[in-house]
């Protein structure tokens, strides 16, 4: 075989359809894959290693060594007074917010969604209005909420101003009401979309058998929404230690210690750390410990919900 035939064969490989297809695939997938490696894998591994690194600044040079210092600090804070009282408040508040989401927001969202799904009077209008808070920045909503509870309510009902910054005992309840008011939008869209996929022949058959709206809700709609409700519960567990109850939008970093959630604490500490790498280890250690609690919990709850859920039939 001559050199020319070799070259033309080599050229044909690059001209082939399969080669072009594979080259295009590699080209298009390179950025997403590199991005995933850097901003997911490297970030999470780095977070793991940061948790075990202790940085010291000596003679203007930053040095580090592996140690368990951050974990020791956290365990000290969890077991010794007065820090353990603060930590106790943080965990209690995070659980309270989680319970509030599951016991109040989910049931109300489902009931409202059922009303909208059944296309009862003004259903479409209600859906649009309830969704509006979801597209406005939480800061603007917090300002409007504050202005309302401090000015409109006292004027209308003759009560005193709420002044959340002066009365800490009112803050948690006020933040929960605020969260309730702004969280229906996305939830209702989620549940109505699931309800819309219910086979209407089932509903018609139930109607022929004399079932009213109540029976339809409990026997058809609720079981059909089970998977969406399960997803919501799992997501709420996963987000239990990230949820800030929008407290930062109201109080910045100055929220009373008793009212802080774990999510708020982590965010404020990260903000305080800024670009100072010496603080990252402590926060990463917190992250690692909380992930160690939440990951198995999420998987267990997911498994339990799958086990106890209604059958697909």
């Amino acid at each position: 075989m001559t050199d020319e035939t070799h070259i033309s064969k080599f050229k044909n490989i690059f001209k082939g359809r399969k080669f072009k297809r594979n080259a295009f695939y590699v080209l298009m997938m390179t950025f997403p894959v590199v991005h995933f490696i850097i901003f997911y894998i490297v970030v999470n591994f780095n977070s793991f290693f940061l948790a075990f690194r202790e940085y010291t600044l000596s003679d203007g040079t930053m040095t580090w060594q592996y140690s368990l210092k951050h974990f020791q600090t956290i365990f000290y804070e969890l077991t010794h007074s007065p820090q353990n009282i603060t930590m106790g408040y943080m965990f209690r508040n995070s659980f309270l917010v989680f319970a509030f989401e599951i016991l109040i927001i989910v049931p109300l969202s489902i009931i409202f969604s059922f009303y909208i799904y059944k296309k009862l009077p003004f259903a479409k209008l209600f859906k649009v209005i309830i969704f509006i808070p979801s597209i406005i920045t939480v800061l603007a909503l917090a300002i409007v909420y504050n202005a309302t509870v401090n000015n409109v309510l006292p004027s209308v009902f003759g009560c005193e101003k709420f002044l959340l910054e002066l009365y800490p005992d009112r803050v948690f309840g006020a933040l929960m009401v605020f969260t309730l008011m702004i969280s229906f939008g996305v939830n209702i869209i989620m549940y109505t979309s699931t309800m819309s996929s219910i086979d209407q022949s089932l509903v018609e058959a139930a109607k022929i058998d004399g079932a009213g709206l109540g029976k339809e809700f409990f026997n058809i709609t609720l079981p059909a929404c089970y998977s969406t409700i399960s997803v919501f519960i799992v997501v709420s567990i996963a987000g239990m230690f990230v949820n800030q109850l929008h407290a930062h939008a109201f109080f910045g970093s100055g929220l009373e210690v008793k009212l802080r959630t774990v999510g708020y604490f982590l965010f404020v500490e990260t903000l305080k750390a800024g670009t100072s790498i010496t603080q990252y280890g402590y926060l990463s250690a917190w992250g690692l410990l909380l992930s160690a609690i939440v990951i198995p919990l999420t998987f267990t709850v997911r498994w339990v919900l799958k086990k106890i859920g209604p059958s697909e039939d």
Binding site: F39, Y40, V43, N44, N46, S47, T270, G287, S291, V294
Partner: peptide
């Protein structure tokens, strides 16, 4: 998998990177 597995507290690491 990344949607199911909740990883908390990796923001400082993301800042570092």
């Amino acid at each position: 998998v990344t949607m199911i597995v909740p990883i908390i507290g990796n923001t400082p690491s993301a800042l570092d990177i």
